[in-house]
Design a protein around this nucleic acid. Sequence first.
DNA 1: AGCGTGACGGCAAAGGTATTCCGATAAGGT
DNA 2: ACCTTATCGGAATACCTTTGCCGTCACGCT
Lengths: 331, 331
Amino acid sequence: MTLLDVAQRAGVSVATASRVLNGGDRVPRPELQERVKAAAEELGYTPNAQAQALAKSSTNVVGILVHDIEDPYFAAIANGVMRAADERNLLVMLASTFRDAEREIAYLASLRAQRARAAVMIGSRRTDAESLARTASEVGSFLNSGAGLALVSQSGMPAHTIEPDNRAGAAALARELVGLGWRRFAVLGGPDTLATARDRRDGFLAGLADSGLEPVAIESGDFTRDGGHAAIERLLDRGVGADCVFAVNDVMAVGAMSALRQRGVDVPGQLGVAGFDDIATLRDVWPGLTTVRLPLEQMGRRALELAIHGGEPTTETFRAEVVLRESTARA
Amino acid sequence: MTLLDVAQRAGVSVATASRVLNGGDRVPRPELQERVKAAAEELGYTPNAQAQALAKSSTNVVGILVHDIEDPYFAAIANGVMRAADERNLLVMLASTFRDAEREIAYLASLRAQRARAAVMIGSRRTDAESLARTASEVGSFLNSGAGLALVSQSGMPAHTIEPDNRAGAAALARELVGLGWRRFAVLGGPDTLATARDRRDGFLAGLADSGLEPVAIESGDFTRDGGHAAIERLLDRGVGADCVFAVNDVMAVGAMSALRQRGVDVPGQLGVAGFDDIATLRDVWPGLTTVRLPLEQMGRRALELAIHGGEPTTETFRAEVVLRESTARA
DNA sequence: AGCGTGACGGCAAAGGTATTCCGATAAGGT
DNA sequence: ACCTTATCGGAATACCTTTGCCGTCACGCT
């Protein structure tokens, strides 16, 4: 089961066997190749990846860190990373941090211990100063170990960064909605510590400001389906007279639509609803959700490319595109 | 950066350093522990996981194989596996096979090369004889290497198996629907090579047969949203007079509902729709989708437990539970 | 014929850690 | 005071592969 067994059975040295099976720079005589390959086949030999990694001091493992793999947003980006990894014959270690900064740091350390070639961290950066500092420290160690790193939606670290243009996308959405005739907007924001949520909210506000408008209400909630559900209920209870509501991501928007349905509020008849992300799984909800599309898979692909390529830290911005559907149609 | 560096800085041997950092059976004198820990801290030492694995000839890596991580069905199960892995301090290598049997086999071989402690394969078994045989062969090698293995929805291999009770769940759904007053059923089946799709279809037919009913039509399509969309269109074009349609999974059902909406067919007024899986992300579609709930996360958890526990091959069946919602409500 | 050159196989070291075994030291018992 | 035993640190070895280097052999050229 070891290379030695193969070599002995083929009647050659381990060096020769290794050279045959690796197809490296030096290739043994055809006859020996035959013998070694046959021996490996008969014995069902599988190289020990750990030993290879140790000998070569490099691996073909890359890591992906997501907050929650069940969230379709992360799944879509991770999918892009995995496709790119597959094309390069890289193995993927994927960790779900369950939105816990400690786990994120611990996993990054594990990846370093594994001598991973590169890692991609997906998720919104937090603005909580202390955990940010500890993450930054671990990121520094990781990069110091010689591995590549790319961040998605998480700038401020000395690594490659993929940044969706949340502000511009949200601003464009605001302008489109105003163009449709909506005027009295409410915003369902996320936690203030999530930069993504903030950027989208602020971008939307900026877009409104272009038309001299201000939102009639801003309500914050979790960045999840239930967060959107709860936030809109609070909004309705407060009785602000909005005619259109913008949720900073699709799952919040869907949660909000569900609450509206329970309360008998017609969408878009009584209230328009818009989201952000254009999650594929949610494209069939009714009424179709107006949203802002992000090229999630492509962002994942590119993140992996940057991570394994290394080099000077780069920031690449991906444009977002407004998608108008029935949930904001005007009569 | 190696253990030797730490040992030298602490003025002890590598053996002692290893013993301190690992907390094995023998524990050095407290004073030395202090010194070693301090040295490790100052140097920012990270053990080389490859070298550890080589020395111990065992790893703390487990693998997950899914067909498509973007499919919420797989994501939910994988999530359960990852939670269980996290609790046991295991690292997860996740591979998306993109529904390609070759990739699946190759990944399993990679996992073997990595000396993974265990693997969980999620996805419907195929009934294609040839690829089944090759998979079985690789599964045999994998188990032979001493690693654990559990399969979800994929019986017929000599490994632990987690089996959702597709037949019973579909049959129960059929009986409930009949109880509601539906009579003329159509079935949107999946590819015939997918055992999951077949079992659900056959279970549904058996449930109908209990009431002496037969479906008015069976139409097969891809196991995806688009598959459901296309299948129902073919059904409508053929003009079969169904009053209720059962799709063998939720994403197909949602695709079908979308097509019905485009064609102006009211759900459930003109046609009832039911699915299978109770995907969390789709619980907010409207009208609410009648479906059969599977404890997906729990199945994932259990799969990991069985995989790392090893022992004699077991089969555990998880019960499914009918969830009635608006998509099959009778006026 | 002699020498240089190139090709090719094998030996051995390196890569970092866990662990067995041995020697030394200290403690406890008679 | 001497012997036994327990304890603990360290040297050495095993884990498996890759790869630099050396020796050999054959071939071609002068």
